[in-house]
Write a protein that binds this DNA or RNA. Structure first.
Lengths: 347, 347
DNA sequence: CTGAAAGCGCTAACAG
DNA sequence: CTGTTAGCGCTTTCAG
């Protein structure tokens, strides 16, 4: 069957203790036996049984990560970064998806706790009292991750949603827009926060938010591209024509741009358009799209660091929350010839 | 500390054996004690230690899945389906990404084997002898997964690449195309196979493959959208104008369509365009794009089933390979008014 | 430098 | 129906 320490030990007339020491790189073994042991391990393809080790040591060197979905790059990008940075500290990650089902999420949490993860990272899909209760009873260190981390008053790393709207709007202001429209996403906390940032950016420079240039959350189809097309159509009919449009997603922005182009509008000179998400596939077509990048890699890195800090400090350390800022990526859809250099300088 | 069986046992003046039996739902426990035990488990938030159980039983009820990347929906879509179908059989999945690094892939394999996965599913990024050797030495049941499964003469589930090209080309033939062009992807096994299927489809109906309407693998930029734009440009200058174009990816197809539209060509009536991948974000814009769907969910399901079969039949069962067929999704970019109904009927 | 003993939390096999 | 014994593969502790 499978090779154990004992097999190597008897092969070499040693005790399994010595094998264990070699395995873990302890210093009190002669160079010669060490070499013999390593040699035999190679030959037999020995692989330590981590279950057994964990049972003894009480730690698994594994960390659970539960995300809402694997179908959305938002989560996989964060996950990739978390995995990468935890691996540097020799931790493995048990990655699960809750598939946006609260019930499945709960089961995955239980499952990972049963597998004795040393810490748990949760990008939750729900805000139920039941979950809050559950997360309070567990001993395992827990870090909440965007989205949904806002609701838990504990260790959390989140994306600064408000700043997304602010960044987009103030960029348009800087390239000279005076009548800035906003195509909002479907009703959600994130959508509200981005809109709040948007309004703040306008009011800071004395511009007012025009209701006729703001779409209601539920007045448009949920399909993003179509949503953008219809929003643009509405703006084209409006009394006040916008000269800049902030879109809740990149795909909405593409719909907007297509409709505006069809109507003969020049982008970016007549109307500048900016999206959110900085999706590589969507931002490099026809008129390359300026977008607000969510800094998902940074979020993952901060999360990994917070977890490691928690693990290092034994005992319930102080609650710490981190909010990561999005970044602006300027491309053709907002690059007006006269303003471009100024704006690049401010990035 | 953490709650163990023993705690519940002493609390209730029982032996831990009884607790174990309740936990596993064995029948030889009185309803009354069973209720008491379950009650106390709830109260104390007891969670069985899976490391300990695995050590004893020799199985972890976990299965390793290693994919080349988490950044590409091809892999995450397969992974989601694998996870879903293995969960139905009560297995957890340890999901890792090799990030396209052969070295990391090898380390992840070792890691998962050390964690005693009951079986391993590998969508490999490499074809090295070293890896083939490694996979031959391990005792753990192994299933190879698209892509890269071709090279291993063992349990494998693969996508029928050749059929992708065939499906796309024969669809264009059916809607009446006579001069079908092909925009190939960068040099790869997959690209060659799809092209092979493409040629087969044409020759089956007596059409010839025209060199001037086939792009060389390396003659164009690697960036897909731009690749499509330039390919279309070349076709527009060609002596023979194509009336249908098969594209290696959806993004290439978008580039192609944009360039053709700019040149005033009508899609689909003058030129029909079809992509591969059926990416939801990319296929629903302007002229909705017909595409060949890779049936990734089906691949995942077949993989899960093969693994479960392997696990059920103890002993080295016969090698089994499955090849999953892609499917055609017809949208506006190939829907010619006169031929549409015929074609829909054949789907 | 090497090794013997004990036990992590759980369950298989068998007794009562 | 309930409990006893033994041991999974490893590491901690302490003795040679």
């Amino acid at each position: 069957m499978t090779v154990r320490m004992k097999d190597i030990a008897t092969d070499l007339n040693l005790s399994k203790m010595t094998i264990s020491k070699v395995l873990r790189g302890q210093m009190d073994v002669s160079a010669k036996t060490k070499a013999r042991v390593l040699q035999r391990m190679k030959e037999l393809n020995y692989r330590p049984n981590i279950s057994a080790r964990s049972l003894r040591t009480g730690q698994t060197l594994s960390i659970g990560l539960i995300v809402p979905s694997l179908a959305d790059p938002i989560y996989t990008d964060m996950a990739r970064s978390v995995v990468k940075h935890l691996r540097l500290a020799n931790y493995s990650v048990l990655l699960s998806s809750a598939e946006f089902e609260p019930d499945l999420e709960r089961r995955e949490i239980e499952q990972q706790l049963s597998r004795q993860v040393d810490a748990l990272i949760l990008a939750s899909v729900q805000k139920s009292d039941e979950l809050v209760e559950l997360t309070r009873t567990i001993q395992t260190p827990l870090v909440h991750l965007y989205p949904g981390s806002v609701l838990f008053k504990s260790n959390a790393v989140d994306l600064h949603e408000e700043e997304i709207g602010h960044l987009a709007a103030s960029h348009l202001v800087r390239v000279g827009c005076r009548r800035i429209a906003n195509v909002r996403g479907p009703e959600s906390v994130a959508s509200d926060l981005r809109y709040k940032g948007f309004r703040a950016a306008l009011s800071e420079v004395g511009q007012r938010v025009r209701p006729e240039l703001t779409t209601e959350a539920d007045a448009l189809p949920a399909e993003d591209y179509e949503r953008g097309v219809l929003a643009a159509e509405r703006f084209l009919k409006s009394k006040v024509q916008p000269d800049g449009i902030v879109c809740h997603t990149d795909l909405i922005a593409l719909g907007v741009m297509d409709r505006l182009s069809d109507a003969g509008r020049n982008i970016p000179n007549e109307i500048a358009v900016i999206g959110c998400g900085n999706d590589p596939k969507l931002c490099e077509m026809r008129i390359p799209l300026s977008s607000v990048d969510f800094s998902l890699g940074e979020i993952g890195e901060q999360t990994a660091k917070l977890v490691l800090k928690l693990l290092a400090s034994n005992g319930p350390s102080k609650v710490k929350s981190v909010e990561v800022s999005p970044t602006l990526v300027v491309r053709a859809s907002t690059s007006r010839l006269d303003k471009l250099s100024t704006d690049r300088g401010r990035r």
